[in-house]
Every structure is written in C-alpha cells, then in structure tokens.
C-alpha cells in the first residue's frame, strides 16, 4: 500500500451518486449559459449587430457623376476599416426603390426625367458601430466633390447607440447574475457535500491524510471539473446555437452567421469563460468547506 493515497475526485470516489446528480445539473446549466454567452458574443452584446444590420450611411452623389467613378468611390469606401459594405446604386435603381417605397408617384418622372440621384449605401461593421467610426467614414466623404450630401442620422444615432449600450450592459448583467447564481448554488452544494461526507473526511484525517491536502485536492478537482463542464456545456450550447441559426436564418440578423462561432476570438472567449468558471468552482469548494467547518465548530 502506498503511504500517500490519491485524493483526486475524492468526493466522487466516496459518494458517487450525489456528485453525478450535481454534475448533470451543472452541465445542463452550462449548456444554457453557453448558449447565452455565444449569442451575446456573436451579437455584440445583444443589440449592436441588430442595429448595424439596420443602420446605413447614405452618400448622395451629384446628378452628373458617371457610374464608373461612383463605383470606384464605393470601392474606396468599402476598403475603410469600419465599413462592412459600400454599394453604389445608380439613379435608375434609386428611382425603382423610391417607387417601391412610395407606389403611385410615377408621374413625378414625366416632365424632367428621373429626379433621383445615384447614391452609395454604406454599412458599418457591428463591432465598429460607434459615433467615432461613423464620423471616420462620413467626414472624408463630405469633402469629396462627387458627393452632394452625406446622411448619417447624426441627430438620433448617439441616442440609439446609448440605448444599445444600455441593452448590452443589461444582457451582460443578467448573464453575470446567472454566473453569480452558479457560484452561490455551487458553494451551497459544496457545503452540503462536506457536511454529508464529514464522517469520511474525519476518517481519512484520523488515518494520517493531511486536511490541507484534502482541501487542496477537492478544490483542484472542482476547478478541473468546472473547466471541463463549462467547456463541454458551452460547446453543446454552441452546437444548439449553430443548429438554431441554420434552421432559422432570420436570427442571423440579430445574432450573426454560424461561421462566427469558430472565429478565434469566439473560441478564446469560451476558453476564458471556462477558466473563470474553474476559478469560481475552486472558490466555491474552498468557501463551502470553510462554511461547513465553521458550522461544525
């Protein structure tokens, strides 16, 4: 017999039943939390992608601008870092769009020809939709001779961005509250388990197992299982989100394309989340042990 028994997964080895039940519960919880986390990450905090999908800067061109020059300008604008797309619409396309929006106004074209000018529709990337980035795109355009007018919605945009920021904070706050709930419930579960297994821990301590080593390995086990459960749960939640986005494509407007799930920054965020969960699990284990011991004293 070895003198130093292994204390890894000691709770599981002493009493597997309750540990399995708790693990299943935590996995399901992390599936939901992972789904929420990935939705928040992809959507840019809940509202930003939705806003970016609906917001556009319109650069109205002068009447006599040739199509080739307008398309060249659109390409230059599209190359700007905050810009997701810049599409030139010629006067004919603009007129058709106008008629779709306001049917029955065909007579306006009768006498003087097409009254609509061509324009460039500029869409901003969701992660760059800020007042500064909108200004970065709009300001140089105003000095371009081909451009008659730049419409950015400056009057209402700051308020809209502020509302989006508030919504984002609220979403992350709810997410954080669930994470804090996990920590508190985890601490209670750990405490309950320490009380239930107190006879076994006393038995081990009486047989020369150092209590400090016991506490350390319990916390280390909780950290490792916390990391694995969070990673597995988030992966499962990610799978569910992927299927949801594929099944209901309209969700992409608010959340984003499924391919974004595999972006390095998304994966890095999931790893970071799993590490944070591991730390919370270890802290819950340590505090649960301390709480159980203080009750017994």
């Amino acid at each position: 017999m070895s003198e130093r028994p292994s204390l890894w997964w000691i709770d599981w080895r002493l009493s597997p039943g309750p540990v399995v039940r708790e693990t299943i519960g935590r996995f399901l919880f992390f599936c939901l939390l992972g789904f929420a986390l990935l939705s928040l990450l992809l959507s840019g905090g809940g509202m930003r992608r939705l806003l970016a999908d609906r917001y556009a800067i319109t650069a109205v061109l002068r009447a006599e601008v040739p199509s080739a020059e307008a398309e060249g300008l659109a390409r230059k604008i599209a190359a700007l870092p905050p810009v997701r797309s810049a599409v030139y619409r010629d006067p004919e396309a603009a007129w058709k769009e106008f008629l779709r929006a306001y049917p029955g106004l065909d007579p306006l074209r009768g006498a003087g020809g097409n009254p609509m000018p061509g324009y460039i529709e500029i869409r901003i990337r969701h992660d760059r939709l800020t007042g500064a980035d909108v200004g970065l795109v709009a300001s140089p355009l105003r000095s371009v001779s081909l451009v008659e007018q730049v419409l950015t919605g400056e009057e209402w945009l700051p308020r809209l961005l502020y509302a989006a920021r508030l919504a984002s904070w609220a979403c992350w706050g709810i997410f954080g509250a669930f994470l804090a709930g996990f920590f508190l419930v985890g601490r209670l579960q750990e405490r309950g388990r320490v009380v239930a297994l107190s006879g076994d821990f006393a038995f081990l301590a009486e047989r020369g197992v150092p209590v400090g080593r016991l506490v350390f390995f319990r916390a280390a086990g909780a950290a490792v299982s916390g990391f694995l459960l969070a990673a597995a749960g988030t992966a499962a939640g990610g799978g569910a989100l992927f299927l949801s986005l594929r099944t209901f494509p309209f969700l992409e407007g608010g959340i984003g394309p499924p391919s974004d799930l595999l972006l390095p920054r998304t994966i890095a965020a999931v790893v970071l989340f799993s590490c944070g969960t591991a730390l919370l699990s270890a802290a819950a284990s340590l505090l649960g042990w301390r709480a159980a011991r203080s009750v017994r004293k």
Binding site: M1, S2, E3, R4, P5, S6, I10, R13, L14, S15, D200, F203, L204, R207, G208, V209
Partner: peptide, 14 residues
C-alpha cells in the same frame, strides 16, 4: 460497501 471504499482510499494503492 462505503466503509470499505473509504478504507481503501485511506490506504491508497489497493
């Protein structure tokens, strides 16, 4: 069985 399980744990290596 639990008594035996924890005794084996305390001894290690069984």
């Amino acid at each position: 069985g639990d008594l035996f399980r924890r005794s084996a744990l305390a001894g290690g290596g069984v």
